[in-house]
Design a protein around this nucleic acid. Structure first.
Lengths: 230, 230
DNA sequence: CAGTATCCTATCCGATACTG
DNA sequence: CAGTATCGGATAGGATACTG
């Protein structure tokens, strides 16, 4: 932010000085969602350059929002964790999200799709409880995309852990979901539903899993907020 | 914001795109506080250039947050009013304010004082009810400041309206408050109280008004949030 | 009073390549 | 894997003066 700092004693300005730099709110969303490792953060904020990510993390550390420390397991790998001040930003970030969901036109941002980011978010919010109590594999296929971004696998372990793979994990696939990225994104954002888009989605495989898709498919944390504009 | 736009479908990013440009949150605070005219907004955001203020107002209009229309009285004077989407930002802006009050060190921003801004905010939040039911005039004096910024008058009308003057309004002064700007600002922000700073404040005039200063002096909307850092 | 026009520069940031 | 180094360009926005 050019000539940074507002030089104002108002608390709103003081907060904005820290929070309203480019990418910062989006990065915070990713931290709040639970990512702690540098490359996990990158996946959640893929358009941010590593240089800037590194710089922002330092700024957030300086502002007392994030602390970096070595992960307890792992060979000196660093983790970024929110401090109390950072956790206190959750309602602020959620405020942004719900307001954005309610009032910002979504058509333009539906032109900026990213399968990697979508699948990464889906992985996080997936709800394993309606699924069988064994390992379940779901393959997503976006035929319109180039080969390297076309196929994705969500592997749901019996303990509820979900892994995202971009090459075949080797296990048998329980359900193939074939659709276009825009439809899948719109469903995930809560702008529409599996049922409404039924004709744009091809489900092939285990019938029970197919039928309950809307329930195991976790949606965006902001999906519940009803859109008020186009 | 350089290369603007996050090109992400996440609602947090969508909101941040609109809200996290320079000065925008601070401007919104002023709109939410009730200013509607261009020059009133300027007083609330004095460090913002008129060019940028004008530009931001247009952007906010484009985003559906503000609408501009001719004031009903007055000769075609424009007013800026929040739309429903804009009013819905109140909790978001307040979230910033409370978080900032709680977690951002205030010492640095207490080096960026501005008597004009402080008095402007005091004018807005003053609570007339403990004052006499007649016109009451309170003169603030900051001896350390240059003459042009030293003296300020708050004129409280019987109906509760408060005017701010920077030259003597002509009416008899009921109370002279003489202190330094830093002390007065810290009190207004809720970081300290009139009683605690009693020795730094000189009160001269009507005793009853002097004694109740802490009550008629309206504080910052965020004063109630307790600071958690230095 | 309520803004515009113009100019210019600081700086933010994106891209890419590279390292322990 | 987890970042750092370097570079250049775009652009945001500060300053100032001006107008209806």
């Amino acid at each position: 932010m050019p000539q940074s700092g507002y030089k104002q004693f108002c608390p709103v300005a003081m907060a904005a000085e820290v929070l309203c730099t480019r990418w910062t709110m989006v990065l915070l969303r990713e931290l709040i969602a639970g990512s702690t490792r540098f490359n996990d953060l990158r996946r959640g904020v893929p358009k941010m350059s590593p240089t800037l990510l590194s710089q922002r993390l330092k700024e957030l550390e300086g502002a007392g929002i994030v602390e970096r420390k070595a992960a307890r397991e792992g060979n000196g790998v660093l983790e970024y964790r929110l401090t109390a001040a950072g956790r206190d930003l959750r309602p602020v970030v959620e405020g942004f999200g719900f307001w954005g969901q309610k009032w910002v036109e979504s058509q333009p941002s539906l032109n900026n799709l990213d399968p990697s980011l979508l699948m990464w978010d889906m992985r996080r919010n997936l709800n394993p409880s309606p699924l069988p109590k064994r390992r379940t594999v779901i393959q997503f296929q976006y035929p319109e995309l180039p080969a390297s971004k076309r196929d994705w696998w969500l592997v749901v372990e019996p303990d509820g852990d979900v892994d995202l793979c971009w090459s075949h994990p080797g296990f048998e696939v329980d359900l193939y979901v074939t659709t276009d990225l825009r439809t899948m994104t719109a469903i995930w954002m809560g702008l529409t539903t599996v049922a409404k888009e039924r004709e744009r989605i091809d489900l092939d495989g285990n019938n029970g899993i197919a039928r309950t898709m809307q329930t195991w498919l976790g949606l965006s944390p902001f999906a519940a907020e009803r859109k008020r504009v186009g």
